[in-house]
Design a binder for these strands. Sequence first.
DNA 1: ACAACATACAACCAGTTGGTTGTATGTTTG
DNA 2: CAAACATACAACCAACTGGTTGTATGTTGT
Lengths: 118, 118
Amino acid sequence: MTDSEDKADAMFHALADRTRRDILRRVLAGEHSVSTLAASYDMSFAAVQKHVAVLERAGLITKRRSGREALASGDVEAVRSVGSMLTELETVWRGRIARIDDLIAIPDPEPNPTERND
Amino acid sequence: MTDSEDKADAMFHALADRTRRDILRRVLAGEHSVSTLAASYDMSFAAVQKHVAVLERAGLITKRRSGREALASGDVEAVRSVGSMLTELETVWRGRIARIDDLIAIPDPEPNPTERND
DNA sequence: ACAACATACAACCAGTTGGTTGTATGTTTG
DNA sequence: CAAACATACAACCAACTGGTTGTATGTTGT
């Protein structure tokens, strides 16, 4: 199985392009064929196809076959998992604040019920 | 001012590298000098310096000078703003679900005051 | 059957990225 | 002051990206 950091690399990379973010928005709103998507952008079909492939490899979208069309759909769970990584970062930051609180609290011999400042 | 999509490009790109994510974690937890950071990775000082520069250009961290050291600090607000972009995507997806609900609701002739399901 | 459509994929190209080394500049410290 | 330290930045390089065109393969509709 691939490392979870590899997964994160792929997801953030996939999101780091406005065309791909736009494609993701569309396919989150509803299924679209690759050629329908391609019609929306001022670039070749093949270029859009490659963007879709990047999103798919990152796990942000899935494709299913229907006759001659490939229908792409956004995976909201994957989007949420990216959000979780960011939340985790925020948690690390909250640790910093907690540590600063500790420093401030040092002179106080009586450990007060923690006051929050965010 | 630079476009908000440019900002998004820069932020997601900055996050799309495990070394940079690790640096961001550290400087969110507390200020670190560039050379302190560099000591943690198996690459040249200059390489780490460039990663820090990418994070700084994306607005995810800030640097301040203290004597000969450059102290880097994570900007939690910037991290949250990336999170907001993802939340916005999720909102688009919720629109899809709402539309599916509408389809199911078609037989109902009376347009009810919208009922939410999340 | 055949033409038009939808996709897939390879080959190619210019620009960017992630790393390197080397050099220059400012800051402490002995 | 001189040596050591911390940073900044330029030049270089291999690998990757985001785009192109061209070709092949399967699917529909007449």
